Simulated assay, not measured.
Amino acid sequence: MGDGSVRLPAIILAGGQARRMGGGDKGLLELGGETLLSRVLARLEPQVGPIALNANGDPARFESYGLPVIADSLPGFVGPLAGVLAGMDWAAELGAGQVVSVAADTPFFPRDFVSRLQAGAGDAPVTLAATPHPEKGSIRQPTFGLWSVDLRDDLRAALEQGLRKVVLWTDRHGASEVVFESEAGDPFFNINRPEDLVEALERGAWT
């Protein structure tokens, strides 16, 4: 990052079932000659230290990316918080105090995403990215965050008790947020449906 900040570990969340895309791995879909995962990696690598991929099933399909592949520790595809927990556990094993999360289907996220989260975190144990909204003020992006690994046992217990909504858990811990604005469109635009791939291609420039 070039400013003396600690280079944090990061987890790319790719553990979803992609039902609206007909199943499979959204990160392996091609967009403008490269996979979504390749585009996400290109944005993320300059901002962080070690990177792992959270994905379920046979890890061999991601072998060409050279990343450690970490499955959810809870069965049944319980949502993105399970991937965050996997990242927390992995980061704790590395001796890190925090881990960054990004989604594997979001190719336009900011190139200064991590440094801005760090700058805006304050004392909060969780900091989420957000985008401005004319009526709600802002909308949080629950898969893009900075997470204290000290919360991993609390998160594990919450998931085992049935909690699934990210913001319910993050609000419980006084999460802060950093708002990202962009004149080029939503920086956290994600690929959920086939038509989203078309829109992403039309958006074009990978800046």
Rank of each mutant, 00 (worst) to 15 (best):
D3Q: 12
S5C: 04
V6S: 11
R7L: 15
R7D: 04
L8Q: 01
P9N: 02
I12Q: 02
L13G: 02
G15A: 15
R19D: 10
R20S: 15
G23V: 02
K26L: 13
L28M: 13
L28V: 09
L28N: 05
L28W: 10
L29I: 14
E30L: 12
L31P: 11
T35S: 15
L37E: 07
L37M: 09
R39S: 13
R43W: 05
P46K: 07
A52H: 11
N56C: 08
G57D: 03
R61V: 10
E63K: 07
L67G: 05
L67P: 04
L67W: 04
P68R: 11
V69P: 03
A71P: 15
D72W: 00
S73H: 07
P75H: 05
G76A: 08
V78K: 09
L81M: 15
L81E: 08
G83A: 11
V84N: 03
A86N: 03
G87H: 02
W90Y: 10
W90H: 09
G95P: 02
G97K: 01
G97F: 00
Q98I: 00
V99Y: 00
V102Q: 03
A103C: 12
A103R: 01
T106D: 09
P107A: 10
L117Y: 02
A119C: 00
A119P: 02
G122A: 07
T127I: 04
T127V: 15
A129N: 00
A129P: 01
A129D: 01
T131Q: 00
P134N: 04
P134F: 03
P142I: 00
L146W: 00
D150Q: 15
L151G: 05
L151Q: 01
L151T: 07
R152D: 05
D153L: 07
D154R: 13
R156N: 12
A157P: 03
Q161F: 04
V167I: 11
L168I: 00
V178G: 06
A184C: 01
F188R: 08
F189E: 08
R193E: 15
P194F: 13
D196F: 04
L197M: 15
V198W: 14
E199W: 06
L201V: 07
E202D: 14
E202M: 14
R203A: 12
A205V: 14
